[in-house]
Each structure stands twice: as structure tokens, then as C-alpha cells.
Design a protein around this nucleic acid. Sequence first.
DNA 1: AAATTACTTGAGTAAAATACTTGGTTATTA
DNA 2: TAATAACCAAGTATTTTACTCAAGTAATTT
Lengths: 155, 155
Amino acid sequence: MRLTTKGRYAVTAMLDLAINSSDSPVNLTEISERQAISLSYLEQLFAKLRRRKLVRSIRGPGGGYMLNATTDEISVANIINAVNESMDISRCEGRANCQDGQQCLTHNLWVDLSNRINSFLDDITIGQLIRQNEEQRKLRANQNDNHKIELNTIA
Amino acid sequence: MRLTTKGRYAVTAMLDLAINSSDSPVNLTEISERQAISLSYLEQLFAKLRRRKLVRSIRGPGGGYMLNATTDEISVANIINAVNESMDISRCEGRANCQDGQQCLTHNLWVDLSNRINSFLDDITIGQLIRQNEEQRKLRANQNDNHKIELNTIA
DNA sequence: AAATTACTTGAGTAAAATACTTGGTTATTA
DNA sequence: TAATAACCAAGTATTTTACTCAAGTAATTT
């Protein structure tokens, strides 16, 4: 599991797609403009997302991309792993003394941690993120309303 | 929060330090050899770790580095943030329409997620990782013993 | 005090990853 | 058939990573 700006671009683009897609597809030019990511870079990212079946494409005019599953079926880990295909190969792979040596105690510790991060991000879906943000927005809106009412009452 | 091989090197080195330090300091040459990380790269990483007060150095013969806090006071997030100093600047920073525009809805979603990842890794200390691994090792050892006993009994 | 050891610092560099550009092609729709 | 948008490939500038080399500084030992 790696977490770089590349993964962030992919998550951002997928969130944009999720938010802006109704029943009609969203084309990459729109996402490119909204999110300030170059079109061809988006093309590269979406080629990988499509290979992992996270999105499906519709060609021709009016075409674009659609999510290939519900927002609650697509995890952040799914997206990040899709665009970071090149596996992180461990250093000590192939070494004879790997299993028992001290260098591999720490290696195992890293693998454990890496797995924990992965399963953490696998439990966060883009649906969750969007709903959570929506609720926070509502909360803030209510607080503002209350504040206005208070002020009005005082005045 | 970024999670790259650089952060992994730092976490690995800190775990090595935690495991191999008694009351005397551990020098970077040892860590370099055990973990197969070049000495000068370790030097750069430890300069940053020292700036963040995660380790302290003892110079001169017999010198080296020691943890500057207990293993339970040092989180994985501490280590990773120490070596990845350059803050991830958000794309839309400074843009006028950032707060309300659609591009910043997704930006906020990303920031929320980033915060969640950060606090997740801030709750994992290197002490935890080491103890957890030790317990797993014991479990496996016991299972092996039981297996041997079973085999012996059968035979 | 001199020599040694070992950490410290900085400049420079090769290799890799990132982000993008260019220039196409193929499929679909109007 | 003309416009649109996905698809594809090759190439490139920039940044980051990981490292080398060299000079400097501090602490210890003899």
C-alpha cells in the first residue's frame, strides 16, 4: 500500500465522478476542468480504474465514464491499489536468512502495519466519505441558522 | 500524509533501533547493515528524525542514536511526518471559488480522508507493533509445540 | 594533546516516479 | 459524414528517491 499524490488524484477523480454522475456518463474533460488534472493523465488513471472494473466507459458523443458499482462497494483502497499497480517488493525477498534474521523481524513488522493500513482504507468507501461530508455540511448550516435566530431574537 | 518507500525506510530503521537498543546507543552503520539501507541515506533520515526530537544522538566512539521517548510515545505517523517534511499543498489553495465550488467539495473530502489516515497512524505506536508481533510469534511457537507433541503421541 | 572514531553537513548525481504533451485511432451519435 | 469522446503509444519535463563523495565537527581514548 502506497499513498502518493497519484492515489490522491485517482480518489479525487472518482469522488468527482460519483458526485457528478446521474444516469448519464461523465466525460474526462469535465473532470479535468473541475479538478485541474490534465486530461491525458486522467486517461491513464481511468485506463487502470477500468481494468480493475471500478468504472465502465461509454464511447462516442455524450459518452464518458460511469461507476461500475455503487459508491458503497468502492473503497478507497480499491482506488489506490488500482493506480499503483507496481507491487512494493520487499527488500529481503530471496535472501536465505530472511525468515529468522533480525532484518526480517522489522520487515515483518512493516508488512503487518502495511496490512493494517490497507484494511483500514478498505473499510472506507467513497459513499461513506460523501455522506459524512454532507452531514457535516447540514450540521454547519443548522448552526448558522440557530445563530441567526439568536441574533434576531436579541435584536 | 504520504506513504512512500521513504517513510517505510524510516519506520523500518526506527523499529530496528527500538529492537536493538538497550542502554547503549546504536550506530547507523549497524542499522545500515541489518536493514540494507545505505549509510548516507540513513544519515539524512535520522537528521530529520532528530530535528523532530524522535531520537537523540551521542557522538564519539561508542556513540550512535537512541530513541528520545518510549516506544509507546512514538507513533508511526510521527515517523512518517518527520521524514516527509514538505507539506502536501492542496491544489486549489488561493483560488477564489475554492470554498464553495465543486472542485473543493472533493478537495474537502480528500482532506477529511487524509485526516482520518493520519489519526489512524497516530494511534499505532512502534511499541504496539513490536509487542503485537512478539505475541504472534509466541502463539505460533505454542502451536508448533502442540503439533510436535501430537505427532510424538501418535508415534 | 593527538589520534581516532563516529556523527554531521552539504553538494552533487543516477535512477525512478510523476504529471503532462503530442499525435494519433477507434467507436458512437447526430 | 462530421463531431465527439474514449483509447492508445511514445516521448518529455519535473520532482522525488536513494545514494555517493568529501569535508567538517565533536567526543573519546591513549
